[in-house]
Simulated assay, not measured.
Amino acid sequence: MGNSPEDDSQSDVPSVDDGPSVGETLRKARIEAGLSIEAVSAATRVRAPIVQGIEQDDYSRCGGDVYARGHIRTLARAAGIDPKPLIERFDAERGGAPAPTPATPLFEAERIRRAEPRRPNWTAAMVAAIVVVIGFVGFTLANGNDDKGGHEAAEGSTPQTSKPVTKPGHDKPGGTRPTPTESAIAAAPRDKVTVVVEAADGRSWIAARDHNGRTLFDGMLKQGQTKTFQDKEKIGLILGDAGAIDLVVNGKPVDDEFRPGQVERLSYTKGDPAAG
């Protein structure tokens, strides 16, 4: 006996009881990434109680399903996993994704345009012209100041073939790490602060900001990867797993006693590498 159409339509609906829940998946991914709830909160600007609630599948603190979806995407990206399957499961548990707002029919929009011809907006044109003039003057003055005071650089990652620092307590059997070459030390300009971050002993989430608070990098650094940051005044760092990170500041290795899983907030300026 064949199945009825109703049975076929119901079999196409995915069961929300299969596999771990959204919160369990996010919690497992965060732990595997070596991140604490506090580190994820600092990286995503999602408050720690909300992060903890979502990992327990409690969305009451999110302020609604729209905000909950945004938090799920943010937490999934911070833990290094694809947010799309989690959003689909969340929508299935909540009765499906919200219906899109229907667009205005084309013929009706065309009728409105023909019924009421638009006149030139001279006020808007004048305002636009003034904005263009002000922008051109500001750009000219900014270029003049840069020529006199130097050019600020906020660099991304640059590959290195050798590990730049030997950290106490992390030596591997069978040899020690090479120290930075003389050319790498000489490459650090004295009129700027240069910070080299290497995930030498495992992957770690890191965030780097310049002296204005502008984000230079915010993401996961896999083992063996290196990022280099430059600023004319200060570089601020947040290390999700400081024990896995080696630092070279202004061409000099930084000796530290960071433990695995330890979250550290650091800042460096020009000269000797002294963490603030």
Rank of each mutant, 00 (worst) to 15 (best):
V22W: 08
R177K: 10
D91P: 07
N250P: 05
T228V: 08
G64A: 05
A29P: 07
A128N: 05
G224C: 02
L106T: 05
E6M: 04
D255L: 12
D91G: 03
E257V: 14
P98G: 06
E116K: 15
G156H: 02
A39C: 13
L221H: 04
E152Y: 09
L141S: 12
I134K: 11
Q262G: 06
I130R: 01
R111T: 08
G202V: 10
N212Y: 11
K227Y: 15
F136H: 12
P100E: 11
S9H: 02
T123S: 13
D65T: 06
L75S: 09
A128T: 05
G224N: 04
K192P: 00
G96R: 00
S267W: 07
L35F: 00
T158H: 13
S162Q: 12
K84E: 12
R61K: 14
L141Y: 14
V254P: 01
T104M: 14
S15G: 04
V133P: 05
D17Q: 03
G64R: 04
G34E: 05
P159T: 07
F217W: 06
L141V: 15
A78D: 03
S4L: 07
N143D: 09
P273R: 08
V165P: 06
G95D: 00
Y268D: 04
A78H: 04
G19A: 00
R119I: 06
D65N: 07
A115F: 07
F90Y: 13
G70T: 09
G23K: 05
K227Q: 14
G175Q: 02
G213C: 05
T140A: 15
G138I: 08
G213K: 04
R119N: 10
